[in-house]
Simulated scan of single mutants.
Amino acid sequence: MAKRDYYEVLGVDRSAELDEIKKAYRKLAVRYHPDRNAGDTQAEERFKEATEAYDVLANPQKRQAYDQFGFAGVDGMAGGQGHDYSHVFRDFEDVFGDVGSIFDSFFTRTDRRRGGGRGGGAGRGDDLRYDLRIPFEQAVFGTKADVAYRRQEACSRCDGSGTEGTTARSICPTCGGSGQVRRNSGFFSIATSCPSCGGEGEVIENPCRACRGTGREQKERRLRVTIPVGMENGKRIQLTGQGDAGIGRAPAGDLYVFVHVEPHPCYQRHGDDLYCVIPLAFTQAALGTSILVRTLDDRRIRVKVPAGTQPAKLLRVRGEGVPHPDNPGRRGDLYIKVAVTVPDRLSSHARKLLGEVAEAVGEESSPEPVPLAELE
């Protein structure tokens, strides 16, 4: 299986600061740590994947090598294939604050598990990802898009209880309702999730036949997502509580909509500015003119071309660029690059007139080379 991009694994942008990287890794490490997901090989792989990504992106030298050369840049470094991550775990105190907080995050108490606050207890629903492709124009000016995806929701038969009919849950005999069991390792006594109840503190004697005691079932969900003006390619929109439903009273996860902007055949975007190329006849460039230019939102604006405009000259039109997300009334600029065209066929009359022009302006018959920078 091909490796995923490290930034994608942690769910951060390529410009993310170290604090954001740590926060993203902490969230994944808490969710997929093997001690919380006993026997779940998929969770174990996700934990290893997140740890490998954090190992590279939290280290300035490794991150620079990865940004420049990709996976090849970190081969042979810690974080590559088959490396020992023990040094990463020694850095847990830097990520989680202190050793105690690690286990507080991994193995929360039953009272937090039963309807605790967001971002806290075990049983919180998984976050989901949706990739949305939109046209260039919609990203610039904003739009509303319908998304359809499948998520875990509370079972309609048992209303999320996981039990059949009025059957009640009973206290787990293994952990006595705490949701945790303790094991001794040297000088340490470590609390881990109870293997009998999965950390719930309770067991179901008669599971719901529809959801088999999970309290959840998969359903299709449809939402209308607002894409703000000035949306950039690769950015994400977080929809709180629209991910998988939590277990019991635990909160639902979030839905992250990653926006992929389709390229435009004529326009390019750089920040809040737009760029396009307009062809001009060499006589228009030489004599100057006024032209009508079609904008991205299908309007016509008049642009003055000064006499003597050179090829590749940029003409600036203020306020015709991308609206700013925080202030849609403020827009970037439109830059028009002039492409001077030369006719490949001339009538005898046109040829005679151009010959007169060449003689009048005194064209150079032996021009000297100019620096390449002047052509940019």
Rank of each mutant, 00 (worst) to 15 (best):
D272M: 11
Q268N: 14
G179N: 06
Q64E: 14
R212Q: 15
G288I: 06
Q310R: 14
T226M: 09
R222A: 13
C266S: 15
T214Y: 06
L353G: 06
M231Q: 13
L353T: 11
F96G: 03
Y149P: 05
G11W: 02
K337M: 13
E320Q: 14
G97M: 09
V357E: 09
C194L: 06
T341R: 15
R345Q: 14
V293A: 06
G100D: 13
E376D: 14
E17Q: 14
R133I: 05
E17F: 08
K219A: 15
L346I: 07
E205M: 08
K352L: 14
Q152A: 14
E93P: 03
A53F: 09
P328H: 03
P369E: 05
T309Y: 07
A58P: 05
A16H: 07
G253A: 07
T143V: 05
G39M: 09
E220H: 06
V357A: 14
R316M: 07
K22M: 06
S161L: 10
D111L: 12
R345N: 12
F282V: 08
A72C: 03
G123D: 02
P251G: 08
P323W: 02
V203W: 02
G253P: 05
E45P: 01
L28G: 07
G199V: 04
Q242L: 08
K352M: 13
F282S: 07
A16S: 12
E44G: 13
V95L: 12
R236M: 10
T192A: 11
Q180I: 08
P34R: 03
I171H: 04
D254R: 04
L10W: 02
A191F: 08
R331I: 02
D127Y: 08
R302T: 15
R31W: 04
F187P: 12
G241F: 07
P34Y: 05
A139Y: 00
V229F: 00
V229D: 00
S101V: 02
G82V: 03
L296E: 01
P251L: 11
G120C: 07
K23A: 15
V74F: 03
F107L: 10
T108F: 00
G253Y: 03
G362S: 04
P323H: 04
P306A: 06
F89E: 13
T214D: 06
S189K: 10
T192K: 11
H33W: 05
V30T: 15
P279E: 10
G70A: 05
V74E: 01
E44W: 12
